[in-house]
Structure formats: structure tokens, C-alpha cells
């Protein structure tokens, strides 16, 4: 057991500040354990969102020493022995209180994507799909909705004005998932992503992919293929550049 120095942002939509705490840390603990210890011993009203404590629910997103991550998956032994650990709420969404932010933006964007359209000619129990075909969409369905990709995406991080027209990486993979679903009856998923979700804003810097705790290849497997396939109908210079850099055209042609 050692005592470590923590700085935690406390406050609400009216403002706030980093508060200093000295707190006990034991072997094998993660940052969320320390936040819980602060609640139990020093700050009973410290607001934090969490559920599963195993990286499966995506509730405890925050920024640890400025880096977006899940509090439950950030091990204390990843910091230097005397390093101060600073915990702040995710920056892209408005603060409710302390480490808890208002993520309703994401739920609003989710409602704007047309739902899965079941094939008209198949009854329940008659669906037949090959594993290799469902796997492409399954990768995106691993998403735990921690919204760290949304938080990191520079199109909306510090750019409130883009939020109305931009759904964000979480919902690009939703669009890609439906586009690649072997039995989805709609055929306008890509066009919808381009025209309604603001796919064109994305300039494939891959920040979303890097921050994804589920290691979903958001940029390579969802965004770029979506951009490529709309390019037939709509010229997008970044996609053109992406094709040159990533040689997706060659990969595609090998299939």
C-alpha cells in the first residue's frame, strides 16, 4: 500500500476546478478503484458513472492525465511511482457534475439512423447467413458505447458548431454495420452516411480507432470503405487521398 496524489475535477455546468486528494493505492488497482476509495473515505458525493468495472459497459469514460480512456481499464501501475494522476470529465460533452457528462448527443444521433430493415420475404427462424458475412458487421457490434471515439474526434471536440451536422465515428460504424448486414433490406446506407450523417467531415486521422477500447478498426473497416463506395456518385478528395495512401483499391481487387 502506498499513498498517491490525485487531482480530480469537481464542479458542474456552472464551473469547477481540480481538487487535490492524497489517497491510498494497493497492488493491482485501477483508477476507478481509487475514485471509489475517494467516495468512500473523502468525498461521498463525488459523481462518477460506472457499472460493470470490467470494460464491457462503457460507462466510466473520462480523461486520465489528459488521455481519454475507461477508468476501469486504466491500471495504476501504468503511471510512474510518484506521478500525480489527474482525472477530468470527457471534454466533448457538457459537464453535469464532477466526472459525469451529458451524453444525450449520442442518443439523439442514434435515433436519426434508419433502423435495421428486415427482409420482407423471411419469417423469424428463416434467416440464413454465413459466418464470414456476419463477421464484418459483428466487429462493429462489439461497440460498448463508451463514446470515447466521439469524445476524441476533432470534428466535434472543441467544435460545438459541427455537432448538428456530424453523427461521429460511433454512428459511422452503425451505418457500416447495417450496410454490411447480409439481410438488411435498405440499400442507401452509404448515401445516408454521406448526406445526413456528415461522413464527409471525417478526414481519417484515426484518432477514433486509436482510442477504441474494443480495438474496432473504425477508420479502416468502416469509414474508409463507406467513403470509397460513395465516391462513385460523389467526389470526395480525402477519400481519393485515402485510396492512394492505403491502397484499398488493390486490397479490394484481391478479394
Amino acid at each position: 500500500m502506498t499513498t498517491r496524489h490525485f487531482r480530480v475535477w469537481r464542479g458542474d455546468d456552472q464551473g469547477g476546478a481540480l481538487t487535490d486528494y492524497d489517497v491510498e493505492v494497493n497492488e493491482g488497482e485501477v483508477v476507478l478503484d481509487i475514485v471509489h476509495r475517494l467516495q468512500a473515505t473523502q468525498a461521498p458525493d463525488l459523481a462518477v458513472r460506472w457499472n460493470c468495472k470490467a470494460g464491457k459497459c462503457g460507462s466510466c469514460s473520462a480523461e486520465i492525465n489528459g488521455k481519454p480512456g475507461l477508468l476501469c481499464m486504466t491500471r495504476m501501475n501504468t503511471f510512474g511511482p510518484d506521478e500525480t494522476v489527474t482525472v477530468t470529465p470527457v471534454r466533448t460533452f457538457p459537464v453535469m457534475r464532477d466526472l459525469v457528462t451529458d451524453v444525450s448527443f449520442n442518443y439523439e444521433k442514434a435515433r436519426e439512423i434508419p433502423a435495421f430493415a428486415p427482409p420482407a420475404d423471411l419469417k423469424p427462424g428463416e434467416y440464413r447467413m454465413q459466418q464470414v458475412d456476419v463477421e464484418r458487421s459483428q466487429e462493429f457490434r462489439k461497440c460498448i458505447e463508451c463514446f470515447l471515439c466521439q469524445n476524441t474526434c476533432h470534428v466535434i471536440r472543441d467544435h460545438e458548431e459541427n455537432k448538428a451536422a456530424f453523427a461521429g465515428p460511433r454512428f459511422f460504424i452503425r451505418a457500416a454495420e447495417l450496410d454490411m448486414h447480409p439481410l438488411d433490406a435498405r440499400d442507401d446506407r452509404k448515401e445516408f452516411a454521406q448526406e445526413e450523417q456528415g461522413l464527409g467531415f471525417c478526414n481519417i486521422t484515426k484518432c477514433c480507432t486509436e482510442v477504441c477500447p474494443e480495438h474496432i478498426k473504425i477508420t479502416d473497416n468502416a469509414i474508409i470503405p463507406m467513403k470509397e463506395r460513395v465516391v462513385d456518385r460523389k467526389y470526395d478528395p480525402l477519400t481519393w487521398l485515402g485510396r492512394k495512401i492505403f491502397r484499398r483499391d488493390q486490397l479490394e481487387s484481391q478479394k
Partner: peptide
């Protein structure tokens, strides 16, 4: 499956 679930096959 009619809601969009994708089970392993």
C-alpha cells in the same frame, strides 16, 4: 434476428 441481431452461425 428480425430486430437486427447477428448471432454466430
Amino acid at each position: 434476428e428480425t430486430y437486427g441481431a447477428l448471432f454466430d452461425r
